[in-house]
């Protein structure tokens, strides 16, 4: 009996390794090893042409990272601009897509609603299309004389020349209230950019990508909220109603607390995704008003052959995403049940 058991254990151990080894090898060859290799490249001046492990490649230590963060120069100014663009992008997209997704989910979840699956499908459909195909549609809609400005003109609004407009929306708003010159204290510079520039808000060109990403992602997040809503205990609503709670109070004190885990997930996924925005930016061309760190990493490496700098950007981005995710988990701790 015991001999058959140990035989069975050995067979299972063998089978186990046999089953996982293709996937494991794949992940090691195409993920783990390349990341280590790229980390090495970020400390070198590799040009993308020679063998990265060969003799022509020079170890430059922290030089690439210093170029990006501490050395005054074009690289740092460009990187700071990309960080600023992406920061405003995240600040606008994450709250908006989360709120819109939640709001749509609550609407679609209404008991009396007929045609629920139609609306669910309509809102989810943009999420499954290719980012390239849908960005091309948006580039067309947001032409200077395009559909969006056509609709705005019905309301007497003269729309901007969206994609060609590099002005920051906060600067535009400030000039609307009469502040056109940067006040003295904003002349202070951080990473080669003045505070005035840091607080520009997203460029009008970036607003197009912001609308696009909110539009394509809220459907997915709506489905997650819908699933969570369907798990909310009905009795709680009835108890709330008996206590005379209005719809807003029921939402605030019954719905929202039970959605906490989903809310955390949606915010985390949103934060991780928005710091990686690339495809849409690629299609807007190499434009300083929309350039993000992810795009700059690609541009430095594949268009300018500065793979060292490009890799360094990728790892800084990696670190940033990790820190923000951990920070968010701290601030919004998951409910323990």
């Amino acid at each position: 009996m015991s001999s058959t058991r140990s035989q069975e254990n050995r067979r299972q151990a063998l089978a186990g390794w046999f089953f996982v080894s293709p996937a494991l090898l794949g992940l090691i060859i195409f993920l783990v090893v390349p990341i280590v290799l790229a980390l090495y490249v970020s400390f070198t001046n590799w040009d993308g042409l020679s063998n990265p492990l060969g003799g022509d490649v020079k170890w430059v230590g922290l030089h690439n990272y210093q170029q990006l963060l501490t050395h005054d120069g074009l690289t740092r100014t460009t990187f700071a601009g990309a960080l600023r663009n992406n920061f405003w992008f995240v600040l606008f997209v994450v709250p908006a897509q989360t709120a819109l997704a939640l709001w749509l989910a609550v609407l679609v979840n209404n008991k009396f609603l007929k045609g629920r699956s139609f609306f669910r499908t309509a809102f989810y459909f943009p999420s499954i299309t290719s980012s390239i195909a849908i960005t091309l549609v948006f580039l067309f809609l947001f032409q200077g004389g395009g559909a969006v400005n056509g609709i705005l003109s019905w309301f007497g609004i003269h729309g901007p020349n969206w994609l060609a407009d590099s002005r920051g929306v906060i600067h535009v708003w400030l000039s609307g209230v009469g502040i056109t010159k940067p006040p003295g204290w904003t002349q202070h510079t951080v990473m080669g950019q003045s505070l005035w520039d840091w607080f520009s808000g997203p460029s009008i060109a970036m607003m197009v990508i912001i609308f696009l990403v909110i539009w394509t992602t809220s459907g997915t997040f709506m489905l997650m909220f819908l699933a969570a809503l369907q798990n909310v205990n009905e009795d709680l609503y009835e108890a709330g109603e008996l206590d005379g709670a209005g719809p807003w109070q029921r939402f605030r004190y019954v719905t929202l607390p039970s959605l906490r885990p989903t809310l955390l997930l949606v915010l985390t996924l949103g934060l991780i995704g928005t710091w990686q925005v690339f495809d849409q930016i690629y299609l807007t061309g190499n434009n300083p008003a929309t350039r993000t760190p992810a795009y700059m990493s690609f541009d430095q490496s594949f268009q300018n052959n500065h793979f060292g700098v490009g890799s360094a950007i990728a790892f800084l981005l990696f670190a940033l995403i990790m820190v923000l995710t951990l920070l968010q988990r701290r601030i919004l701790p998951e409910e323990i049940d």
């Binding site: 254990n9 299972q12 151990a13 063998l14 089978a15 186990g16 390794w17 089953f19 996982v20 996937a23 494991l24 992940l27 195409f30 993920l31 783990v32 390349p34 990341i35 290799l37 790229a38 490249v41 993308g48 990265p52 991780i272 710091w275 990686q276 690339f278 992810a294 990493s297 690609f298 490496s301 594949f302 793979f307 490009g310 890799s311 990728a314 790892f315 981005l317 990696f318 995403i321 990790m322």
Partner: peptide, 30 residues
Amino acid sequence: LRFPGRRGVFMLILGTLAVPNVVLLIPRFL
């Protein structure tokens, strides 16, 4: 299946989930 090292394999695969896609462009090219 029970096999020695299963926990390690599990953690390694789980760990790769944390790597953002955009960070992988240069490594994969390499």
